[in-house]
Computed example of a mutant assay.
Amino acid sequence: MIENIQFDEGPMRDVFFLALPGLLAAGGIAGMVAAVVRMRRLSAVWRSGVTAEGVCVSAYVVTTSHGHGHGHGGGPSHSTWHHVYEFTTPEGEVLRFEEAGGPRTVVGGDRVVVRYPEGRPDRATAIPPGKRNENLLATGCLLAFLTVFVLAALSFIGFYLTVLRPGANAVEDRIKDTVRHVRESPQPGPTGGFPTGFPSGLPTGPPDGWPSDMPPPPPLP
């Protein structure tokens, strides 16, 4: 039973405790890059983008809840306005795009000004330049949250590498040493000093000095 014990859980443990936090950290970094790129694109469009007249096709609100509350309202929530816009380029191409974070006052049927980089109508936006400060603030809050998120994931990885994994390896080494000691110890059995046959040297007659002229037993009735 002891000879069949194997200790190969180290790689699997590393995958669980390193891969998952690593993926979370990578996702957080990707979100930070995407937020910065979006903000840079908006700034470029506001400065020198091509303008076109567009129309809001529809508008709706997406509410995201964080955590679980005990009341009817649940945990903290955040609402974001989403708009679907349609516009026509100077070349006569009709395009439609969806955008989050637009003005709450814009509803379906409203006329808007659409801006996009030269030659890239697929990067169009209907967010007006007057929302620059609001977008900067929202982007800053998002970057701060993602920074804390990434640091937490990386801190857990560092804690695992410096504390948890060495402790687990020490425990596994101690168990391996114990199992090795048990395997190398002599085991009781036929070769461990126990008799293997019928004992010899047993007496085969009366002991020395035993009287030989004992009277005969009385007759049976």
Rank of each mutant, 00 (worst) to 15 (best):
M1E: 06
I2V: 07
N4G: 11
Q6P: 00
F7C: 01
E9W: 10
F17R: 08
P21F: 03
L23R: 00
L23P: 00
L24A: 13
A26D: 01
A26H: 01
G27A: 13
G28Y: 05
G31I: 01
A34P: 01
A34G: 10
A35I: 07
V36S: 12
R40A: 13
V45Y: 03
V45I: 14
V45F: 02
W46G: 06
S48C: 04
S48F: 04
G49E: 01
V50M: 10
T51Y: 00
E53N: 11
V55W: 04
C56A: 15
V57Q: 07
V57D: 08
A59D: 13
V61D: 15
V61F: 14
V61R: 15
S65H: 15
H68C: 02
G71C: 05
G74S: 03
H78G: 08
H78A: 12
T80D: 15
W81Q: 13
H82T: 11
H82I: 13
V84M: 07
Y85V: 02
Y85A: 05
F87T: 00
P90K: 02
G92P: 03
V94P: 02
L95A: 05
E99R: 06
E99Q: 15
R104V: 06
R104M: 11
T105K: 07
V107W: 06
G108P: 03
G109N: 07
V112Q: 01
V113Q: 07
Y116V: 01
Y116K: 05
P117K: 12
R123T: 02
R123D: 11
A124N: 03
T125Q: 04
A126V: 09
A126N: 09
I127W: 03
I127C: 08
G130I: 05
N133T: 14
L136T: 14
A138I: 08
T147K: 07
T147C: 12
T147N: 10
T147Y: 06
V148K: 03
F149I: 07
F149K: 09
A153H: 05
G158S: 02
G158M: 07
F159V: 04
Y160K: 01
Y160E: 04
L161W: 06
G167S: 11
V171G: 02
R174E: 10
I175D: 02
R180G: 08
R183T: 00
R183I: 09
S185N: 01
P188N: 03
P190G: 12
G193S: 11
P195R: 11
G197E: 15
F198Y: 14
F198N: 14
S200A: 14
S200Y: 08
S200M: 11
T204P: 02
T204M: 08
G205P: 12
G205A: 15
P207Q: 14
D208I: 06
D213W: 07
M214S: 10
P218I: 06
P219N: 04
